[in-house]
Design a protein around this nucleic acid. Structure first.
Length: 615
DNA sequence: GTAGGGTTAG
């Protein structure tokens, strides 16, 4: 006969179900009842109550219970440590752990080791994770497989995949959690073939395993294969009974700027009944914004039942990248009115919006308000946004004062922001000064080298141009080749500069020539400043004529349904001349054209661009 | 009574 286990107290069962529903009111009622009946200090209620508050998202209530408790044993510590390790400030678990060991002299058990390792995984603290591993092996719990699974996860998250594999191999009877942790580890660290190999060796592949694999591919930058795997998962008829995998694959379509795919996924989300999921809603808002369909993004946002700081921030950033600064600022006011606290990401989006619309004073105010009104210390990235804001609108001296007095060491991005603005405004001596500082940092980004080389060339400093080239060779920096991509749902096409697909060659060239005639009538003169190669003027014009974004727009005009918006994605920034040309094309053809470049979105309509030529 | 794997914003 197996030993009879004590049935759970009916109130404990009620607490657990309230926690699952995240029902804080129910927790409070039960808490009151326990207090009145004097049961609150009897086992299992101290830890069950704490756990219920924590799991329904009220960590401060859980913390209060812990602090007021007179008897803090391993179970109570374990409940709070677990809650903190899952919170948005997992490092708090470390100070609690120290208090447990040094103040209350409670020795860690298997539960506590698991939470400690989880904390190290969340904050990426490999050194401490290794110490915890060593202590665990010395303890009497060294055979605990739950802790081993958390160690597999911890090593993977700290990029030590081979160490994760060593732990994985020591587990005799691996369960799903352990397999999934290892598959996720390989996938998210870019070890694709090992991830797939292990995945297909799994005894059974459930939704968790598929999600881990797909999310891992996405994390390591392989959105295309992430989507392919999702299709394979559907073919394998895996039931989707939670929304994790959907938000992951919606994220992949944002990355790919694949609007048609995103629309289909939106349909699937509705069909599977996840209309009211906030996380999925947030992912969809971001997807539509990144796929250049800002109106649909806004429609999904307006339809959200619940909005958290991520929902608002996603929408603010979306409006900002589409050059709709007024809408971004208006959203911010509504967000504050709705009682949602902005965070550091919200301010990045807001200052970016001001910067791209030339709203200097408003941007300065927001930057100051960040710390004054919201207690958020500006990061280096915020300072870089401020530098961009000031320098773009011609406040170069003020910007130079900021970069020299800010409480951070400026990096490649900060000097780069300042330099590109100086150069655009033709301040040669300041440009050279900035360029010299930037060159000293041995930059990594190919576009920085192009910027440096152009700056020195414009100033006639040919010896500096030569040293830029030399450093590029030393650092093995190669300019990324430009390409543009258009997705019409039924067919999509990728264009590189100067290359036209054979089957469409005549039609595309003929259309571009017809458009050029019309443009010439309207006074268009090619702006060859964007052509870097040292060639004759008419050769430069010929190169511009075949820029990838133009080829993609021409393809879109020929192939898309008349009257629909043409959406083009470019991997680098759009060139000055193409910007002029596409404005004219939008006027001549009466079509709306949206280009997503490396930096932002350009909406071309009736001869104008949403960026106001200020990008 | 307490633990381990997979989702959203710059």
């Amino acid at each position: 006969m197996p030993p009879l286990s004590t049935p759970p107290h009916p109130l404990a069962a009620l607490l657990r179900s309230s926690a699952r529903r995240r029902d804080r009111t129910a927790c409070r009622k039960l808490h009151a009842h326990l207090l009145k009946s004097g049961l609150h200090q009897r086992r299992p209620f101290p830890s069950a109550l704490l756990d219920a508050y924590a799991k329904s998202g009220f960590l401060s209530d859980a913390r209060c219970l812990f602090d007021e408790s007179s008897h803090r044993d391993a179970v109570l510590y374990s409940a709070l440590l677990s809650a903190l390790s899952h919170s948005d400030r997992p490092s708090q678990a470390l100070s609690l752990f120290r208090r447990m060991v040094y103040v209350d002299a409670v020795p860690p058990d298997g539960f506590i080791f698991a939470s400690l390792v989880k904390t190290c995984s969340r904050i990426g603290f490999l050194r401490l994770g290794k110490q915890a591993h060593a202590q665990f092996l010395l303890s009497s719990f060294y055979t605990d497989d739950v802790v081993r699974s958390s160690l597999v996860d911890m090593y993977s998250k700290c990029c030590a995949v081979d160490d994760a594999r060593k732990v994985f191999d020591t587990v005799p009877d691996k369960n799903h959690v352990c397999w999934t942790a290892m598959v996720s580890g390989y996938a998210s660290n870019g070890r694709k073939s090992e991830a797939l190999g292990l995945f297909w060796q799994m005894p059974r592949r459930d939704l968790f395993a598929w999600t881990a694999l797909i999310a891992g591919f996405l994390q390591s930058g392989d959105s295309f294969d992430a989507v392919k795997l999702f299709v394979e998962m559907r073919r394998n008829q895996v039931e989707i009974d939670d929304s994790f995998v959907l938000s992951t694959v919606v994220g992949a379509s944002s990355d790919l700027a694949a609007l048609e795919l995103g629309r289909q996924l939106h349909g699937l989300v509705l069909a599977l009944g996840y209309k009211s999921s906030m996380i999925l809603g947030n992912a969809l808002v971001d997807m539509y914004a990144k796929c250049s369909d800002i109106r649909s993004a806004r429609a999904v946002f307006e339809g959200l039942v619940m909005r958290d700081v991520i929902s608002w921030t996603t929408m603010v950033v979306g409006e900002a990248q589409h050059g709709r600064a007024d809408d971004a600022l208006d959203l911010y006011d509504k967000m504050v009115l709705a009682g949602v606290k902005p965070n550091e990401v919200t301010f990045t989006g807001l200052i970016y919006a001001c910067s791209h619309a030339g709203l200097v004073q408003k941007g300065r105010e927001l930057f100051d308000s960040m710390e004054q009104d919201h207690g958020i210390r500006p990061s280096l990235q915020h300072y870089t946004c401020l530098l961009d804001l000031l320098s773009r609108s011609g406040h170069l001296t003020e910007a130079e004062n900021v970069i020299n007095s800010m409480p951070y060491v400026p990096d490649e991005a900060s000097w780069g922001a300042l330099l590109s603005a100086c150069k655009k405004q033709g301040d040669t001596s300041m440009s050279v000064r900035m360029a010299d500082r930037l060159l000293g940092l041995k930059p990594k980004d190919p576009s920085t080298y192009i910027l440096l080389s152009n700056t020195y060339a414009a100033a006639g400093k040919w010896d500096s141009v030569a040293s830029v080239r030399k450093l590029m060779a030393e650092m093995d920096v190669k300019k990324e080749p430009g390409y543009s991509w258009i997705d019409l749902g039924k067919e999509s096409c990728l264009f590189r500069a100067g290359e036209v697909p054979y089957t469409m060659r005549h039609e595309i060239i003929r259309l571009l020539n017809e458009l050029a005639n019309e443009m010439n009538k309207r006074g268009y003169v090619p702006d060859t400043r964007s052509v870097m190669h040292d060639v004759e003027e008419n050769e430069k014009e010929q190169q511009l004529f075949m820029h990838s974004e133009r080829l993609a727009v021409a393809f879109g005009l020929l192939k898309s349904i008349p009257g629909t918006t043409i959406r083009v994605i470019k991997n680098l920034r759009i060139c000055l001349d193409c910007h002029n040309v596409i404005k004219l094309i939008s006027e001549i053809t009466g079509r709306e054209i949206v280009v997503r470049d490396a930096n932002r979105f350009h909406h071309f309509e009736v001869g104008k661009c949403s960026c106001g030529d200020f990008w």
